[in-house]
């Protein structure tokens, strides 16, 4: 069994990727989904926005040396929409981003982040703009995302964050990797299955 890892805080510098409705095809182009494991996904986030066809760097926050080493990602609305590919949050996480703060997230993406132990938390439009401007003005700013207290702080400032209570509980209790939790109830699962008519060819 894997050890229990409680995710209560993420601290460090941040990088900003602006824009609404950034889909998972943009976060990781489909051709990288041909790899059999997630091991190399950290090389590919936003690949086609960071590199041209010849492999030359294009202007992009993830190519900008001043944001190197960031552990938080700041985004706008409906981040991670589209394909359910877990490769997208895997790419961001393996690149080194341990938490995402945004105005809102697509449903499957937020679920994928949580089950990986990556907090995807929301703040108001005004607050994300302040956070983004803070990073863009001073990339060395260090942030502390506190999942227990539901705040993000930097310097003297503290901003309220939000996330579903179930996600907060899963992260802070270390049960975000849900398999063991679910597997513990296997007997009850079998009982539920027995009651469903399609599981036994609609008995009379």
């Amino acid at each position: 069994m894997s050890e229990i890892v409680k995710i209560t805080n993420v601290t460090g510098t941040a990088v900003t990727i602006r824009g609404n409705d950034i889909d998972t095809d943009r976060i990781i182009p489909a051709r990288y989904l041909k790899e059999v494991t997630f091991a190399r996904m950290g090389e590919y986030p936003f690949f086609d926005e960071r590199f041209d066809g010849a492999g030359n760097l294009k202007p992009h926050p993830l190519n900008d040396p001043k944001y190197k080493g960031a552990s938080l990602l700041f985004v706008n609305k409906n981040f991670g929409c589209g394909s359910s590919r877990e490769h997208a949050p895997q790419a961001l996480y393996r690149y080194g981003l341990n938490a995402i703060v945004g105005e809102s997230f697509a449903a499957i993406f937020a679920g994928n982040c949580t089950i990986m132990g990556v907090p995807a938390v929301t703040v108001s439009a005004g607050d994300i703009e302040q956070l983004m401007q803070t990073v863009e003005k001073d990339p060395k700013t260090s942030f502390n995302l506190d999942i227990e207290a539901k705040t993000i702080s930097f310097g003297e400032q503290k901003i309220a964050i939000d996330l579903p209570e179930t996600y907060r509980s899963a992260l802070t209790s270390g049960s975000w990797d849900s398999t063991a939790l679910l597997r513990a109830n296997l007997e009850q699962v079998k009982k539920t299955a027995t009651k469903l008519p399609y599981m036994s060819n609609f008995p009379g």
Partner: peptide
């Protein structure tokens, strides 16, 4: 509904999802 790969793991291991 659609799910990610870790959730595919959960369905395989337990036939359930959180």
């Amino acid at each position: 509904f659609g799910i990610g790969t870790s959730q595919v793991r959960d369905v395989l291991a337990t036939q359930t999802l959180a």
